[in-house]
Design a protein around this nucleic acid. Structure first.
Lengths: 244, 244
DNA sequence: AGGCAAGTTTTTGTCCGACAATCGGTCAGT
DNA sequence: ACTGACCGATTGTCGGACAAAAACTTGCCT
């Protein structure tokens, strides 16, 4: 006879999962406030401290949000809630530049292609603004810094694919800050970056998905070339560049 | 003079972020135990309840894990910790079949291609075992169910790319259960699935990346064809299939 | 009637103390 | 050497308490 180690989850976890069910089932819709801690404690038949511990879990998962000392609001987890955790996990797993690059090499061109069909006028304008800012900064010999990161976020936002948006974010968050590490050694790299960005934007504006995709592919491929030219190993561990 | 409303984060959040810093900085390595709650409370100069609330956040992020009523152990977040959250987020964002499919259409072939170069003998054996099981099940007219899900997990695990593994998981978790929804209406679909799986495995075994990638691409493309043949809209919302 | 100011009630954040259950180890007894 | 009772440490849960902030009421004034 098999006896399996029966697990009795602590009460605070029960509270957490129970509230999750209520939110997922739609009984509590995004935007609505949760009952007060005292009410919840009474309903679940546990102490307020226990409820609070359960709430902390939901809070860190982005299912509820508290602004100041106000009531908890049900929210739908945003990319900004999830991406940092995934990014942390990737860093702790000691992913290499190559692993990141391989994934970026398929996700970024897809984003560019989809953006060409789906980008709104406002999004194209934002891309152009980013392009001008990047260009101006690079002319002065300064590193594009966060502008590069922002560019790729804008492209994937314009792609109107929420799955892509969420999947791509952690990769970009780690990969593009890596550009900074070799950009000083390769002055021409920044100019190539601006050129590629320009062509991607041009493709998106002309609704030319193939063009946007092609140049995005070149652009990401360039990233690896630059990495290698700078004498960095492909197996180099990635450090967290930005901590948002 | 501008006075901005300065925000004082609650103490439990300070505890959480402080512990995060210690873990990320490497002062606390994975596998090591955290100090006891009482010690932490003393060190941070806060009450034990406050410490406990902070710990809950780390716990739900997969940075620490508790087994039974023992000390907390520092751990590196595993795919199983993150994927469910991302999956939930995708469901709450009401992603469509098409959005999922578009991303799968680039990630899965990449996984197959990389697996062809990197798969270990044990992983190939696991793939074959999965293939046999799937084949046997389909012969009996039963739905492959979780075996399909497992197949794609095995492929991406064999790809030896941790970024891909983490990025792909939430997509697979939502997409493959969707197969069940139309599989009954299209009896030939299951046989096509087995054939595609077989070719992918063959490609991986022969270290023929192009072959594996090609058939994986066909396989994922088939998924959309099946979806459309079953009369389902591409814009259909995706329901959570499995809740792990 | 409508708007504003002061007061009252709720609610959150934090603390204190307490106790049963469990874990880990010690130590005597067989 | 193995068993089982004992003991300290730690966690899970509870009860209550209180200051600060937010939300709500009330009453006054125009």
């Amino acid at each position: 006879m098999e006896i399996e180690k029966l697990k009795v989850p602590p009460a605070y976890q029960a509270v957490s999962t129970e509230l999750q069910k209520h939110i997922l089932s739609g009984a509590l819709k995004p935007g609505e406030p949760l009952p007060s801690e005292i009410e919840l404690a009474a309903k679940f038949g546990v102490n307020r401290s226990t409820v609070r511990e359960g709430i902390r879990q939901l809070e860190s998962e982005g299912l509820v949000r508290r602004e100041g000392r106000k009531r908890l609001l049900v929210t739908v987890p945003h990319s900004a809630d999830l991406a940092p955790r995934t990014t942390r996990a990737l860093v702790m797993h000691e992913v290499t530049f190559e692993e990141l690059w391989e994934v970026a090499m398929v996700l970024e061109p897809l984003a560019a292609q989809l953006a060409a069909s789906a980008a709104s006028d406002a999004q194209i304008a934002a891309l152009k603004a980013n392009l001008d800012a990047t260009s101006a900064v690079v002319e002065r010999g300064i590193s594009p810094g966060k502008l590069d990161l922002e560019f790729h976020s804008l492209v994937s936002a314009a792609a109107a694919n929420k799955v892509l948006l969420l999947s791509r974010e952690p990769v970009g968050l780690l990969l593009y800050p890596a550009f900074e590490t070799f950009q000083m050694q390769l002055p021409q790299a920044a100019r190539r970056l601006v050129e590629a960005h320009r062509e991607v934007v041009a493709g998106i504006e002309r609704r030319d998905g193939a063009h946007a995709e092609l140049w995005m592919r070149k652009h990401v491929a360039d990233l690896k070339r630059g990495w290698e030219l700078a004498g960095l190993s492909i197996d180099q561990r990635i450090e967290p560049g930005v901590t948002p």
